[in-house]
Design a protein around this nucleic acid. Structure first.
Lengths: 348, 348
DNA sequence: TTGAAAGCGCTAACAA
DNA sequence: TTGTTAGCGCTTTCAA
C-alpha cells in the first residue's frame, strides 16, 4: 500500500486491471465484494485500487446495469414546512434503502408538473415520488409514464399509479369532532382560497360538514372563510375581515399550519384570546405549529408512515411489480396543544 | 404524424434512425436542434421520433459526454427552515441554469460529511455545493475531491475550494449595534451550545464583543447563554434558567430563528414583554421569524445572493476554471420587526 | 449536409 | 476462479 491516490483525473477499471495484472472482471469482482475471489488476488487488486485511487464511474455502471439508484422526488416547494419535512423523511428512507434523491421543484406550476411525468426523468431515475397539486387523475393516467410512480397528496388518484395519503375527510371529521367535544359550536373553516379550491380542501370540507351535521348543527356557509392566496398575509386578512364583519365563531380549523399562524395573528390583533374565545387548529403538524407560542394544535399526518409506505410501494414497482395502482391510507392523529385546550381562560 | 408513441419499453436512437431511414448522427442532430439540417430531413426525423415516442436516455448521454447535468447539494437537514430555504433557492438557480439537484442529507454526521467528499458523488454529478457543519478546513483540503466544490457556511474555509458566506462577525457587530442604538445595554447572546461551539458561533461572538467594547460596555460572560442542544426546548430552558437566576438582560441576540422563538416562549412564560422589557433578535430571517406573532426581527443573509454566487463559482469550475479557492462575502441586512421596536410598550 | 464507426467505463454472459 | 468480449445508448470525429 502506497500513499493513496495519484491525483490523476481518470482512473478506469481497466487501469487497475493493468496495474494488478489481472482482467477487468477480476477487478470488478473485488469492487463488488464478490465471494469467489482468492484472498491474495483480492489483496493484490485492492492494492492497485488504493494506489491509483480508483473510484467506479457510476454513470457507466448505470448504463451497463440499467439501474440508476436514484429516485426523483417531485414536490411543489422545498421550503414549505410540510414538504420540507416530507423531503427529509423520504431522503432518510432513500439513504436507508440505498437510493439517492433527485429533487424536482414544480413550484405548483402546471407545466412543471407535466414535465415531471412527460420527459424529465427518462432513464435518469428508477422511480418517482410525486406530490402533484395542479394536475389531476385523468392527465396523469394519460401521460402514462413508464417509470414507476407513487403519488402523494389528494390531487390525483389514478387507477394506474400507486398512491398514499391520509383519509382527509375522516381527519377533518375527527378534528371538528374534537372541537365540538370541547364545547365549540361555531366552527370556522379557513381553507378555501378564492377561485382555487384544491382537492385537499374539497375532501376536508366534506369531513367538516359531516361532523357538524352529525352533531345536529347546520353548516353555515359564512363560516367557510376564503382567502386570496396561500401566504400568511392572505390568511390574516381573511380572518380579520371575518372578525370585522362580526362573523361569530369560537373555533377555526385551518388548511395548514401557516394559516393557523395567520389566524393566531389576526385573533391577537383583534384582542381575542386563544383558546379562551377562539380555538385554533392547524393542519400538517409542522414546525410552525410545534414551535409557536402558544404551541398550536394540529392535525398530524404520520409523515414517517407516508414516507415509508410511499417508498415501499415504489420499491415494489422498481423491482418488477406491475399491477394496477394500489391506494394506501396511513395513520393520522390530532396533536392537541395549547390552542384547543378545553378549559377556557379569561380574555386579555 | 401518427397517434403518438407506442408504449414499448425501449426506443433507441437507433430505432428512430432505422424508421426514418437515416443515420444516428442525423437523428442526434435533430434532437439537439443542430443548425445544418434540411427542413425536410428534420421533419422526417421528427415524425419518426413522435411515432416511436423516443426519449433520449440521459444516462447514456452522460457517459458519452462526461457531463451529468447534475449538482449535488449536501446539507445537514432539509427540514430546517434555513436549509430548506437555501435548498429551494439553489434548486431554482439550478433549474434556471439547466442543472438538476441531487440532495444529500448529512444530518450533521461526521461520516456523512466525509462521504460527501470522499466517494459518494464520483462521476455522478458535475459539482457539489456543500454546507458542512462538522468537518473543517484541514480535512476538506486533505480529502481533495476532484469534483468542483463550493462551500457554504462558516465551518470550513480551505484554500483549495471556493466558499461563500456572509460576514458573520460584521453582521453580529451590526446587530448588537442596532440593539445598542435602541437603548439596550444588557444584551444577551443565546448562541452557544454547551460543549459544541460551532464555527458560526465563534465568529459571531467576536462581533458581539467588538460592538460592546466599541460602545464602552464590558462584555459580561454571564450574558452568554448556553443551551444543551439545538432544539426549541433547549433554548427555552436556557433562557428560562437565566431569567430564574435573575440574569439581567434587556435584549437577546439568538443563534437562529428557532432560538428566537425559544426566547419568545421563555419570555412569555415569565411574563416579560417583548420588546418592552426585552428585545429579541433572531438569525437567518426564516419563515419562523416572518410568520411568528409578533413578527421576529432577524439578521437576514441575502439567501438569493448566496445561492446565485455559489452557483456562479461552481459553474466556473465546472466549465474549466481550476484556480485556487475564491472566497466571496455576500450581503446581509437586519430585518427589523416587532421584537426590536425601539418604542417600549407597557408590559402585560 | 449526412453517414460510419470508434469510443465513454462498466457489467455480465460465456469460456476457459 | 479468472479471462474475453459483446453490449448499455449516445456523442462526436472524420469522411464522404
Amino acid at each position: 500500500m502506497t500513499t493513496g491516490g495519484r491525483s490523476s483525473g481518470h482512473v478506469r477499471l481497466k487501469d487497475v486491471a493493468a496495474l494488478a495484472g489481472v482482467s477487468m472482471k477480476t477487478v470488478s469482482n473485488v469492487v463488488h465484494g464478490y465471494q469467489h475471489v482468492s484472498p491474495q488476488m483480492r489483496e493484490r487488486v485492492q492494492a492497485a485500487i488504493d494506489e491509483l485511487g480508483y473510484r467506479p464511474n457510476l454513470t457507466a455502471r448505470r448504463l451497463a446495469t440499467g439501474r440508476t439508484g436514484m429516485v426523483a422526488l417531485a414536490l411543489p416547494e422545498m421550503d414549505q414546512p410540510y414538504f420540507a419535512e416530507m423531503a427529509r423523511l423520504i431522503g432518510e428512507e432513500a439513504t436507508r434503502r440505498g437510493y439517492r434523491i433527485l429533487v424536482e421543484q414544480t413550484l405548483g406550476e402546471v407545466e412543471a408538473e407535466r414535465a415531471v411525468l412527460r420527459d424529465r426523468e427518462e432513464g435518469l431515475v428508477d422511480g418517482v415520488i410525486f406530490h402533484p397539486v395542479r394536475i389531476g387523475t385523468v392527465e396523469i393516467a394519460r401521460l402514462q409514464p413508464d417509470t414507476p410512480l407513487v403519488l402523494l397528496g389528494e390531487a390525483a388518484l389514478p387507477l394506474t399509479a400507486d398512491h398514499v395519503m391520509i383519509d382527509n375527510t375522516a381527519a377533518a371529521h375527527e378534528a371538528v369532532g374534537l372541537l365540538l367535544a370541547q364545547g365549540r359550536r361555531r366552527i370556522a373553516f379557513l381553507a378555501a382560497v378564492r377561485g382555487d379550491i384544491t382537492a385537499s380542501t374539497r375532501v376536508r370540507l366534506l369531513g367538516y360538514q359531516e361532523a357538524l351535521v352529525e352533531a345536529g348543527i347546520d353548516p353555515d356557509p359564512g363560516l367557510v372563510l376564503q382567502s386570496d392566496g396561500f401566504a400568511l398575509e392572505d390568511g390574516v386578512r381573511a380572518v380579520s375581515q371575518a372578525l370585522e364583519s362580526d362573523v361569530d365563531f369560537d373555533a377555526v380549523l385551518c388548511r395548514d399550519d401557516l394559516f393557523a399562524l395567520a389566524a393566531m395573528r389576526a385573533l391577537d390583533a383583534a384582542g381575542r384570546s386563544v383558546p379562551g374565545e377562539v380555538a385554533v387548529l392547524g393542519w400538517d403538524d409542522t414546525a410552525y405549529a410545534r414551535n409557536a407560542t402558544p404551541p398550536v394544535s394540529s392535525v398530524s399526518p404520520d409523515k414517517k408512515a407516508l414516507a415509508t409506505t410511499a417508498f415501499d410501494l415504489l420499491e415494489d414497482r422498481m423491482t418488477g411489480f406491475d399491477g394496477l395502482g394500489r391506494h394506501r391510507l396511513t395513520a393520522y392523529s390530532i396533536a392537541e396543544r395549547a390552542t384547543t385546550s378545553p378549559a377556557p381562560r379569561p380574555a386579555g
